[in-house]
C-alpha cells in the first residue's frame, strides 16, 4: 500500500504538468478559434484564404508531427530559435486546437438562421450589434457540445508530449513501470485521465444546462 501511494504521488506530480498544458491550451486556443471563425465568416477574402490554409494544414496533419516540427524543425529554419520543451508543446497544442475551434465556431455561426440577421437589420442593428447580441449568444449554446468533445480529446492528447520527455502523467507512470516491472502505475494513470475527463464532462454539462433555459 505504501508503495502504491508512493507511485501515485509521483504520477500525480506529472498531473500538474498535464493540467497546466490542458488549461493553458484551452485558455489560448478558444479565443484563437473564435477570432479565426470571425475572420473566416467575414467578407475579407485574404482573411478567409489565410484561415482556410491554417485550418486545412493543421487539421490535415498529425499532431505528433506538428510537435516534432515546432520543437525540432523550427530551430533548423530559424537558427537559434529553440523553444523549451514545454513551451514548444504548448504552442503546438494551442495552434492545433485553435484550428479545430475555428471550424467549430464557424459551423456554429453559420448554423444560425439568416432570418436572425434580417430581423436585426430591419430593427436597425449594426453588424457588430447583431453579432454580439443575437448571433454569438446562440452560437455559444450550439458549440458547447463539440467543444466539450475537443476538451476530452485534449486531456488524452496531452499524453503525446511524452515524446519530448516532458514529465507528465504518462511519462512518470512509464518510468515506474520500467523500473519496478509492475503495471499498477498504468492503472493509476488511466484512473487519473478518467477523473480529469469526468471533471471536464461535469463542467460542460453544467454550462449546457445554463444555456438550455430557452428551449
Amino acid at each position: 500500500m505504501d508503495y502504491f501511494l508512493q507511485s501515485a504521488g509521483y504520477i500525480l506530480k506529472g498531473c500538474t504538468i498535464t493540467l497546466k498544458l490542458f488549461f493553458l491550451t484551452i485558455i489560448f486556443s478558444l479565443p484563437l478559434g473564435f477570432a479565426g471563425a470571425m475572420a473566416k465568416t467575414s467578407k475579407v477574402k485574404i482573411l478567409i484564404y489565410l484561415m482556410e490554409a491554417y485550418t486545412s494544414i493543421v487539421r490535415g496533419t498529425p499532431l505528433l508531427l506538428q510537435i516534432f516540427f515546432v520543437y525540432y524543425g523550427l530551430p533548423i529554419i530559424f537558427p537559434g530559435f529553440r523553444l523549451q520543451r514545454f513551451n514548444a508543446a504548448l504552442l503546438t497544442f494551442i495552434l492545433n486546437y485553435g484550428a479545430y475551434f475555428v471550424e467549430i465556431f464557424r459551423g456554429g455561426i453559420q448554423s444560425i438562421d439568416k432570418g436572425q440577421y434580417e430581423a436585426s437589420k430591419v430593427l436597425g442593428m449594426s453588424y457588430f450589434q447583431t453579432m454580439r447580441r443575437i448571433i454569438l449568444p446562440q452560437t455559444i449554446k450550439r458549440v458547447l457540445p463539440p467543444i466539450a468533445n475537443e476538451a476530452i480529446t485534449l486531456v488524452k492528447d496531452t499524453a503525446l508530449v511524452v515524446v519530448l520527455g516532458i514529465g507528465e502523467i504518462l511519462r512518470n507512470s512509464k518510468e515506474i513501470v520500467s523500473r519496478d516491472f509492475t503495471i499498477s502505475p498504468f492503472i493509476i494513470a488511466a484512473l487519473l485521465y478518467l477523473v480529469l475527463n469526468y471533471g471536464v464532462v461535469l463542467f460542460f454539462k453544467s454550462l449546457e444546462k445554463r444555456y438550455s433555459v430557452y428551449d
Binding site: D113, G115, Q116, E118, A119, L123, G124, M125, Q129, R133, I134, P137, Q138, K141, Y214, D215
Partner: peptide, 23 residues
Amino acid sequence: FQNFNLYPHKTSLENIIEAPLIV
C-alpha cells in the same frame, strides 16, 4: 416576416425591447 424571426434566446419582453435599448 412570415416565419417571425424572433430571437430564441430572448423572452417576449426582451425580444421587444432589444432594439429600443441598443439602437
